[in-house]
Simulated scan of single mutants.
Amino acid sequence: MTEVAQPKNVLDPSAEQLGKTYARALINAAQAEGNDTLQLVVNQLGQIVDEYLGGSDSLRMALGSPRISEDEKVRVIDRVFGQDFHPLLIKFLKVMASRDRLGFIHAVRDQATQIFDDMMGRVVASVKSAVPLDDSIRNEITNHLSSVMNKQVRLTETVDPDLIGGMVIRVGDRVYDGSVANRLNSMARTTRAGFSSKLLEKFEQLTSQ
C-alpha cells in the first residue's frame, strides 16, 4: 500500500502549538538579520508550502513521511530548494527534518504569516469571488479597506463560481454588507476594461436588491 503524507490540520491544538513554536523561532532568527530578510523568509516559506508542496504529492510525501530518513530529506531540501531560497530558511527546514517535524510545515507557515501580519499591524481580508480578481480591482479593494480600517490589509482570495452575490469580503468576524458592495460596484465600473463582466453582472444583481 502506497503511503501518502497528509498535511497536518492546523486546527489540531498540538499542530497549532508546534507551528507557533517553530514559527516564532524562524521569525526571531530572520528578524535578527533585518526586516528585508524577515519578509523574504516569510514569503519564501509560503511559496514552498503553496507552490512546491501544494503542487507535488511526491515532494510532500518525501518531506513529511516518517519512513524517509533525515539524510534523504536533507538531500531533497538541498536539491529542490538550495539554490533559490534564503540560506536561513534552508537551515530551518533542515532543523525541522532533523526533528521529524516537516509534516507540520503547513502549520508553521500559517503561524509565521500570522505573526508577521501582527508585527506589521496588518489585518487579513478574505475575499471570495465568483471569478478571479484582476490587479486593478484587487488594488481597489485593498486600498478601500485600508482606508476604512486605517491599517494595512493583506488579501487572501478564493474563487467560487457558484457565489450568488459575486463577492464576499470577511475581515475577522465581520462580513461586509451591501453598503460596501455598492462601493465596490462603483470601483468596478471605473475599471470596467480590466474587470470581468460576469462579476460586474453579479454585483449589479446584488446591489439592485
Rank of each mutant, 00 (worst) to 15 (best):
K91D: 11
G178L: 11
T2S: 14
I105S: 06
G82S: 09
R99D: 12
S208I: 07
V153R: 04
R67A: 15
I164C: 05
S208R: 01
G64M: 08
N35T: 12
V131P: 01
A125G: 07
R183D: 05
H106L: 12
Q31K: 12
M120Q: 09
E201H: 07
I141F: 04
E157C: 12
S14R: 03
N182S: 10
E140Q: 08
R189N: 00
P7L: 02
Q39F: 13
D100C: 14
Q6F: 04
A125Q: 04
R109P: 00
T37K: 14
K198D: 03
S147C: 06
T190A: 00
D110C: 08
D36C: 03
D173A: 07
R122L: 02
G194I: 03
F203L: 00
R75M: 11
P66Q: 15
R75Y: 10
G103W: 13
Q114L: 10
L133S: 08
F85N: 10
V95R: 08
G166Y: 06
Q39V: 14
D162M: 10
A193W: 02
I48E: 15
S146C: 06
V95G: 06
V74W: 13
P161F: 05
D162A: 11
A5G: 04
A32R: 12
V76P: 14
L163D: 07
L199W: 01
D50E: 14
S69A: 11
V175I: 06
I169D: 07
L206W: 03
R183G: 00
I169H: 11
G64N: 13
L53A: 10
D71Y: 15
V148I: 13
K73D: 14
G166S: 04
F203D: 00
R122M: 07
S98Q: 11
V171L: 05
G34W: 07
L93I: 08
Y176K: 01
F85W: 15
Q44V: 15
G46I: 13
G54P: 14
Q114V: 00
N150D: 01
R24N: 09
V123H: 02
Y52P: 13
D135F: 03
L199H: 01
T156I: 09
R60K: 15
S56M: 15
S146H: 03
T190F: 00
N43K: 07
D118T: 04
N150K: 10
R154K: 13
S69H: 12
E16N: 00
Q111M: 05
L40M: 13
D135W: 04
R170C: 02
L155A: 05
T37L: 03
